[in-house]
Design a protein around this nucleic acid. Sequence first.
DNA 1: TTTTATTGATTGACGAGTCAATAAAAAACC
DNA 2: GGTTTTTTATTGACTCGTCAATCAATAAAA
Lengths: 190, 190
Amino acid sequence: MPKLGMEPIRREALVTAAIAEIGAAGSLDVTVSAISKRAGMSSALAHHYFGNKDQIFLAAMRHILAGFAVEVRSRLHVATTPRARLKALVEASFAQSCFDPEVISAWLNFYVKAHTSPDAMRLLRVYQSRLRSNLIHALRPIAPKPDELADAIAALIDGLYIRAALGAPISNDPAATILAFTAPHLEEQP
Amino acid sequence: MPKLGMEPIRREALVTAAIAEIGAAGSLDVTVSAISKRAGMSSALAHHYFGNKDQIFLAAMRHILAGFAVEVRSRLHVATTPRARLKALVEASFAQSCFDPEVISAWLNFYVKAHTSPDAMRLLRVYQSRLRSNLIHALRPIAPKPDELADAIAALIDGLYIRAALGAPISNDPAATILAFTAPHLEEQP
DNA sequence: TTTTATTGATTGACGAGTCAATAAAAAACC
DNA sequence: GGTTTTTTATTGACTCGTCAATCAATAAAA
């Protein structure tokens, strides 16, 4: 009973299922069968639409990155001052949605994958440079060295995220920590 | 022709080989056979001495962590002032040895592993708390809030390391960046 | 009848862990 | 001192799974 136009529906279901499976397993050691089963179809169909397992992972990561981009844009949208934009960027990086166990697993494994897969690396670069340019844009009016500061903040975001993701005893709100440590590097007038 | 006392020799050879294989593969998708072959023995012998693959990985990571600890201690040993100790700790984290491709792969995968394996997590905690206490010790005499600053620096180290490891366009010397970023949070008298 | 959707069954590989068998040190025994 | 026994070292062969990817077959829209 083939209804037409199933492709986008199946793809989305597979992507969602893949994220869930990765989250459940905590690693990329997840079978296409498990993903397909969770998505309610045969593994053959998954191969039919995605070609191979790597493509499923890539699509899953693109999905997560897209979600993050939405999070960022919505916060950036209501920020009017440079300082508010900075705050929005940092807080978006520690939003609730970034700490779904599934998302955490995906990110962790994404780093590893990027180390060997050019496709994954390209995707990572997209995230990195988008964050970087957003940060620089926010910092330019208020920091003497926007570039360098942006790099430091980006690193701080990644570092704190990983620590939080790995369940380190989270002393304080990471976003607040970052803003506090950034403050002295900004120009006057809070 | 069994020479006695082979166990420690075999174990070390396996650990070394495992690190090399992980480096070559860029992931933990490495077979015991490959490791054993590189170490010059049968896979059966590897199982005989380590029991299972996970134990080999754990031992490999312990080996790397031990190497790092040596790096830290030797630098700390010649540092006399608190500021010098801070510098030593930061610089040790970006020493040449930390950027061996093998070491990079091991670290990346270690993070993922820690997310699911309690043993790996324990090991990670050892590294984290050692670094933390070293930092706090260095900072106590020169920072108003040693704990919070230590956490931020630790995160900055992890974040910059990962970025460097993943080949991000390394603008500057990461250690210098961290020290510059930290400076405003220290008490007077440079 | 052509295109799209769908799957069960199968292939082909690979890989962790086990086991029995071999060999040579070392220790125990006479 | 020589013989037997135990312990340590070592491996080839094998078991038992798993799993990615393929394919031929079925079904229903267009």
